[in-house]
Protein backbone atom coordinates (compact mmCIF):
# COMPACT_ATOMS: atom_id res chain seq x y z
CA UNK A 1 0.00 0.00 0.00
CA UNK A 2 1.47 3.30 -1.01
CA UNK A 3 0.89 6.23 1.31
CA UNK A 4 0.57 9.73 0.05
CA UNK A 5 3.99 11.21 -0.51
CA UNK A 6 4.95 13.92 1.97
CA UNK A 7 7.20 15.67 -0.50
CA UNK A 8 5.65 18.89 -1.77
CA UNK A 9 7.69 18.97 -4.93
CA UNK A 10 6.81 15.45 -6.03
CA UNK A 11 3.16 15.99 -5.33
CA UNK A 12 2.86 19.31 -7.08
CA UNK A 13 4.88 18.29 -10.11
CA UNK A 14 2.94 15.05 -10.45
CA UNK A 15 -0.29 17.03 -10.21
CA UNK A 16 0.81 19.33 -12.99
CA UNK A 17 2.26 16.64 -15.21
CA UNK A 18 -0.51 14.06 -15.15
CA UNK A 19 -2.92 15.82 -17.55
CA UNK A 20 -0.10 16.40 -20.01
CA UNK A 21 0.99 12.79 -19.82
CA UNK A 22 -2.56 11.71 -20.50
CA UNK A 23 -2.85 13.99 -23.50
CA UNK A 24 0.49 12.76 -24.77
CA UNK A 25 -0.67 9.18 -24.42
CA UNK A 26 -3.85 9.96 -26.31
CA UNK A 27 -1.77 11.64 -28.98
CA UNK A 28 0.36 8.53 -29.26
CA UNK A 29 -2.74 6.39 -29.65
CA UNK A 30 -4.43 8.62 -32.20
CA UNK A 31 -1.35 9.28 -34.32
CA UNK A 32 -0.21 5.70 -34.60
CA UNK A 33 -0.86 5.98 -38.34
CA UNK A 34 1.69 8.67 -38.94
CA UNK A 35 4.30 8.39 -36.27
CA UNK A 36 5.66 5.63 -34.10
CA UNK A 37 3.23 4.57 -31.47
CA UNK A 38 -0.15 3.00 -31.25
CA UNK A 39 -2.43 1.29 -28.85
CA UNK A 40 0.11 -0.53 -26.75
CA UNK A 41 2.47 2.33 -26.19
CA UNK A 42 -0.33 4.80 -25.63
CA UNK A 43 -2.07 2.46 -23.24
CA UNK A 44 1.06 1.91 -21.26
CA UNK A 45 1.72 5.64 -21.02
CA UNK A 46 -1.86 6.16 -19.88
CA UNK A 47 -1.29 3.56 -17.22
CA UNK A 48 1.95 5.31 -16.32
CA UNK A 49 0.00 8.47 -15.57
CA UNK A 50 -2.09 6.55 -13.07
CA UNK A 51 1.02 4.98 -11.65
CA UNK A 52 2.52 8.44 -11.19
CA UNK A 53 -0.63 9.60 -9.48
CA UNK A 54 -0.58 6.54 -7.28
CA UNK A 55 3.04 6.92 -6.32
CA UNK A 56 2.74 10.61 -5.54
CA UNK A 57 -0.75 11.01 -4.13
CA UNK A 58 -1.29 7.60 -2.62
CA UNK A 59 -3.44 4.75 -3.86
CA UNK A 60 -6.55 5.97 -2.12
CA UNK A 61 -6.77 9.10 -4.22
CA UNK A 62 -5.92 7.18 -7.35
CA UNK A 63 -8.65 4.73 -6.63
CA UNK A 64 -11.14 7.54 -6.74
CA UNK A 65 -10.31 8.00 -10.41
CA UNK A 66 -9.71 4.40 -11.36
CA UNK A 67 -10.99 1.76 -9.02
CA UNK A 68 -10.18 -1.92 -9.39
CA UNK A 69 -13.67 -2.66 -10.55
CA UNK A 70 -13.55 0.11 -13.14
CA UNK A 71 -10.22 -1.20 -14.36
CA UNK A 72 -11.64 -4.67 -14.74
CA UNK A 73 -14.67 -3.42 -16.63
CA UNK A 74 -12.53 -1.20 -18.83
CA UNK A 75 -10.17 -4.01 -19.72
CA UNK A 76 -13.13 -6.13 -20.78
CA UNK A 77 -14.58 -3.28 -22.76
CA UNK A 78 -11.27 -2.54 -24.44
CA UNK A 79 -10.78 -6.06 -25.68
CA UNK A 80 -14.43 -6.21 -26.63
CA UNK A 81 -13.99 -3.14 -28.83
CA UNK A 82 -11.30 -5.01 -30.72
CA UNK A 83 -13.23 -8.24 -30.97
CA UNK A 84 -16.44 -6.34 -31.65
CA UNK A 85 -14.97 -4.50 -34.62
CA UNK A 86 -13.89 -7.85 -35.97
CA UNK A 87 -17.34 -9.30 -35.40
CA UNK A 88 -18.92 -6.24 -37.02
CA UNK A 89 -16.91 -6.98 -40.14
CA UNK A 90 -18.23 -10.51 -39.96
CA UNK A 91 -21.79 -9.25 -39.77
CA UNK A 92 -21.22 -6.89 -42.69
CA UNK A 93 -20.28 -9.82 -44.87
CA UNK A 94 -16.51 -9.90 -44.78
CA UNK A 95 -14.09 -12.19 -43.07
CA UNK A 96 -13.26 -11.67 -39.43
CA UNK A 97 -11.25 -8.44 -38.95
CA UNK A 98 -11.74 -7.39 -42.57
CA UNK A 99 -12.07 -3.67 -41.89
CA UNK A 100 -12.73 -2.83 -45.52
CA UNK A 101 -16.31 -3.92 -45.00
CA UNK A 102 -16.75 -1.16 -42.44
CA UNK A 103 -16.88 1.20 -45.40
CA UNK A 104 -20.45 0.07 -45.95
CA UNK A 105 -21.68 1.80 -42.82
CA UNK A 106 -19.11 4.57 -42.65
CA UNK A 107 -19.58 5.43 -46.35
CA UNK A 108 -15.92 5.77 -47.20
CA UNK A 109 -13.53 4.00 -49.53
CA UNK A 110 -12.14 0.63 -48.39
CA UNK A 111 -8.68 2.10 -47.75
CA UNK A 112 -10.07 4.79 -45.49
CA UNK A 113 -12.34 2.26 -43.84
CA UNK A 114 -9.28 0.19 -43.04
CA UNK A 115 -7.58 3.26 -41.66
CA UNK A 116 -10.54 4.03 -39.43
CA UNK A 117 -10.76 0.40 -38.43
CA UNK A 118 -7.13 0.52 -37.36
CA UNK A 119 -7.90 3.62 -35.30
CA UNK A 120 -10.80 1.92 -33.57
CA UNK A 121 -8.72 -1.14 -32.88
CA UNK A 122 -5.94 0.97 -31.44
CA UNK A 123 -8.38 2.71 -29.11
CA UNK A 124 -9.62 -0.65 -27.90
CA UNK A 125 -6.10 -1.91 -27.39
CA UNK A 126 -5.13 1.24 -25.53
CA UNK A 127 -8.11 0.94 -23.18
CA UNK A 128 -7.43 -2.70 -22.50
CA UNK A 129 -3.72 -2.26 -21.95
CA UNK A 130 -4.27 0.76 -19.70
CA UNK A 131 -6.84 -1.02 -17.60
CA UNK A 132 -4.81 -4.20 -17.34
CA UNK A 133 -1.64 -2.41 -16.37
CA UNK A 134 -3.57 -0.49 -13.72
CA UNK A 135 -5.05 -3.76 -12.53
CA UNK A 136 -1.68 -5.43 -12.24
CA UNK A 137 -0.25 -2.36 -10.56
CA UNK A 138 -3.05 -2.27 -8.01
CA UNK A 139 -2.92 -5.99 -7.48
CA UNK A 140 0.80 -6.03 -6.81
CA UNK A 141 0.90 -2.88 -4.73
CA UNK A 142 -2.10 -3.72 -2.57
CA UNK A 143 -1.22 -7.36 -1.98
CA UNK A 144 -1.36 -8.16 1.70
CA UNK A 145 2.10 -8.13 3.06
CA UNK A 146 1.65 -10.01 6.27
CA UNK A 147 1.42 -13.69 5.59
CA UNK A 148 -1.37 -15.41 7.43
CA UNK A 149 0.11 -18.80 7.92
CA UNK A 150 3.73 -18.00 7.65
CA UNK A 151 6.38 -20.55 8.21
CA UNK A 152 9.88 -19.31 8.70
CA UNK A 153 13.13 -21.06 9.28
CA UNK A 154 13.28 -20.09 12.93
Amino acid sequence: MIQESDDVIVKAVARLLVPFIVVYALYVVMHGHYSPGGGFQGGVILAASFVLLGVSHGLEKTRRRMSEKAAMVLSSIGVLIYGGIGALCLILGGNYLDYAKLGKILRVTPAEARSLGILGVEIGVALAVMAVMCTVFFAIFTAEESPEDYRSLE
Partner: peptide, 17 residues
Protein backbone atom coordinates in the same frame (compact mmCIF):
# COMPACT_ATOMS: atom_id res chain seq x y z
CA UNK B 1 -9.92 14.08 -32.24
CA UNK B 2 -7.79 16.56 -30.36
CA UNK B 3 -10.74 18.45 -28.96
CA UNK B 4 -12.42 15.24 -27.87
CA UNK B 5 -9.28 13.90 -26.23
CA UNK B 6 -8.45 17.14 -24.48
CA UNK B 7 -11.99 17.67 -23.24
CA UNK B 8 -12.07 14.13 -21.93
CA UNK B 9 -8.77 14.55 -20.15
CA UNK B 10 -9.84 17.90 -18.77
CA UNK B 11 -13.07 16.44 -17.50
CA UNK B 12 -11.24 13.61 -15.77
CA UNK B 13 -8.37 15.66 -14.41
CA UNK B 14 -9.80 19.15 -14.00
CA UNK B 15 -8.92 19.35 -10.33
CA UNK B 16 -5.27 18.60 -10.85
CA UNK B 17 -3.96 21.45 -12.93
Amino acid sequence: LGVICCALTAYLFHDLL
